[in-house]
Amino acid sequence: MKPLKIINVVGARPNFMKMAPLIEAMNHYPDAIHPILVHTGQHYDEKMSQSFFVDLGMPRPDIDLGVGSGSHAEQTARIMVAFEKVCLDHQPDLVIVVGDVNSTMACTITAKKLGIRVAHVEAGLRSRDMLMPEEINRLCTDVLCDYLFTTDYIADRNLLAEGVDAQKIFFVGNVMIDTLMKHRQMASQLDLREKLGLTPQGYATLTLHRPANVDDRDALKGILEAVHEISQTMPVIFPIHPRTKKMVESFGLEGFFNTSDTVAGVWITEPLGYLEFLHLNMGARLVLTDSGGLQEETTVLGVPCITMRPNTERPITCEEGTNTLVGHHKEAILAAAQRILHGDTATGQIPEKWDGRAAERIVDVLLRVESGAN
């Protein structure tokens, strides 16, 4: 039987962390799977994307669509037009998409309209917030896909409640955690903390990029006020997202960041590579974020996480992990931080199947079910 031709799509920074273990697992079966890696170019900054190929040991993309930035409609349309040509040229048996970015939805729609089967890795996550573009992407993707690979029982329950055929759902665990476990030792050996003069448990890290938090001046100001107050107790390391940097400057909020030689304060850095940021988070006293993936990583690392959003598509991290959902109001952020700094933190546990083997399970499923589909 000829090898399965599988197009694997990445588009934005979190996608690379999810795709890396899948590519590695596929490469264990060179006679059975022919993987093709497509990078849509949705994230095109070196630190936001390209450096991840080096950090994660991923092969360079076979195809780079180079779509760049734009409105959601512009970006989605450019991806669909470019990806249709890829599918017509390569005639894949299957397309694999990961996560919830525009590339995920755009490539799913394109492939399905061409009659190509699609698998979604990280299916079934729901925030119930239709103001989030990612929620729209998740819903559109999951309703179309042939294989839905889930990270936890809550995702399974969401899909079943939406009427998805149970035979399409496969609970495999979390590929993001596969990547973390593979690189944890390597990250621990970096000397970035020493270079920055940081001591383990003596600092916090911050990520901030969601439009609801950074495009509204009042929301952004409240968050930065809270972070600034926390930073008087310990330094807060902030690898600033290009979008956030632009909005901070636009709103004239640069004054919240450290500009002196004092130890305390919010320390701005350029976006960090995967290993560098994992290294910092492993030693942090707490993590402040509006990201999705960091909620999962901190749960496995056992590091307290304050998620500055009103909802999360990863509630398992609150139910079983170390994550606390607080919204974006200054008082709530500070109250959560004070509890953590005074030792009132959830012990947490690692969710089922977050064991570093999710990618293996996915490839096992595909080899079994796709052999019958061809």
Rank of each mutant, 00 (worst) to 15 (best):
V10E: 01
R13V: 00
P14E: 02
N15H: 01
K18T: 08
M19G: 04
A20W: 02
P21N: 09
I23N: 05
M26L: 09
N27P: 03
Y29R: 07
P30N: 10
D31K: 14
D31A: 12
P35Q: 09
G41T: 09
Q42R: 15
K47D: 14
K47Y: 14
M48I: 05
Q50N: 15
F52I: 10
M58H: 01
D64V: 13
D64W: 09
G66R: 11
V67R: 03
S69T: 08
G70Q: 12
H72A: 02
Q75A: 13
T76R: 04
R78C: 13
V81Y: 12
E84P: 02
D89W: 13
D89V: 11
D93A: 11
D93V: 11
L94N: 00
V95P: 01
V97L: 04
V101F: 08
A106L: 03
C107E: 08
T110W: 02
L114R: 04
H120A: 01
V121Y: 02
E122Y: 07
R126L: 00
P133E: 06
E134A: 06
I136G: 03
V143L: 13
L144F: 05
C145R: 04
D146W: 08
A155H: 01
R157Y: 08
A161T: 09
A161K: 09
D165G: 10
K168D: 04
G173R: 12
I177M: 07
T179C: 10
A187Y: 02
D191L: 11
D191P: 04
E194Y: 15
L198D: 08
T199L: 09
Q201P: 02
Q201A: 14
Y203F: 10
L208T: 01
R210D: 11
R210G: 07
A212T: 15
N213I: 09
V214K: 00
D215I: 02
A219Y: 01
G222A: 05
L224N: 01
E229K: 04
I230R: 07
T233M: 12
P235M: 03
I237Y: 03
F238D: 02
F238K: 01
I240E: 03
T244C: 07
T244F: 00
K245P: 07
M247N: 14
M247V: 11
G255K: 14
T259K: 05
T259F: 11
S260I: 02
D261R: 12
P271C: 13
L272N: 10
G273M: 09
G273E: 00
E296R: 11
V300I: 11
V300D: 03
N311A: 15
T312I: 04
R314F: 06
I316Q: 00
A332K: 08
A335H: 14
A336N: 06
Q338W: 13
I340P: 02
I340K: 05
L341I: 15
D344M: 13
W354G: 01
A358W: 05
V363K: 06
L366D: 01
L367K: 15
R368F: 15
R368Y: 10
G372P: 11
